[in-house]
Nucleic acid binder design. Structure first.
Lengths: 133, 133
DNA sequence: CTGACTGCAAACTCTTTGCAAACCA
DNA sequence: TGGTTTGCAAAGAGTTTGCAGTCAG
């Protein structure tokens, strides 16, 4: 079942389901979700949570950051050092127990940066300066 | 309608709806959602997207980071300088047009760090080392 | 045989949308 | 009046869950 990590590129549960279904048409969506959850909990794959979008599952299990295309929704790996203890920089912990962090970059992927038009998740952003998240 | 920013603390659309309903019982959820979207787009309030949770709306419109309590879901403001151009540190832009980023810290809030038990969003995390996101 | 795993369908959460009625300028 | 905004209910996306049947050891 884990051989589904051959999909490599940040597949959503549904993409995994579709891929599995081709070889094992009887497998149900529920089973795929259940097993992805198990694998993610055991650490064999990594769940990448995307706000307002389906969770994606990553065969790379080390910590790293992602960038999301605001037009097509694609997720790409970002080539940047993981900031191990970013949370040490926080000035006033106020009793909060920091366990980790996640950074999500936003923008347009190579394919999408030109075609200005069409549906996009960017519509939810403030319109004046799209750099204001 | 914007006076709903008196709720101050990262209210969800539903919390806003509940608050409005007390004074204007006829207002529907759809209207609240529609207007929150308009206000967020015009930049009068800031939408904070929380993976696998309801979006929250923030009266603070400047860029800043948040921390999410993995037990109760509460969102708190993080006292840390906003890293204006974090995306400059990315080694290999690969044609991606970076427009911004968001950082979400995770952990347990003051109230929740002690009570180990009960439902928690942390259950979705790998179990061995909860610091591995 | 027993516990673990599965398929199915229904349920759930959060949010958006079509439409007709109500409102406002 | 004509464009905008509303309420309602239905629809939508993504995911989980109860249950009964199936499988493996």
């Amino acid at each position: 079942m884990e051989t589904v990590r051959r999909l490599r590129d940040h597949a959503t549960a549904d993409e995994v389901y579709d891929a599995i279904k081709k070889e094992h048409p009887s497998v149900s969506r529920a089973t795929v979700y259940r097993n992805l959850n198990l694998l993610a909990q055991s650490g064999e794959i990594k769940r990448v949570e995307v706000p307002n979008g389906a969770d994606r599952f990553d065969h790379r299990t080390q910590n790293h950051y992602h960038a999301e295309c605001l037009r097509c929704g694609k997720l790409i790996d970002v080539d940047m050092e993981y900031m191990e203890s970013l949370e040490n920089r926080i000035a006033d912990p106020k009793g909060f127990e920091y366990l980790g962090h996640d950074i999500l970059f936003k923008g347009f992927c190579e394919d999408c940066r030109s075609d200005n038009g069409g549906l996009t998740r960017a519509q939810k952003l403030p319109t004046q300066t799209n750099t204001n998240f």
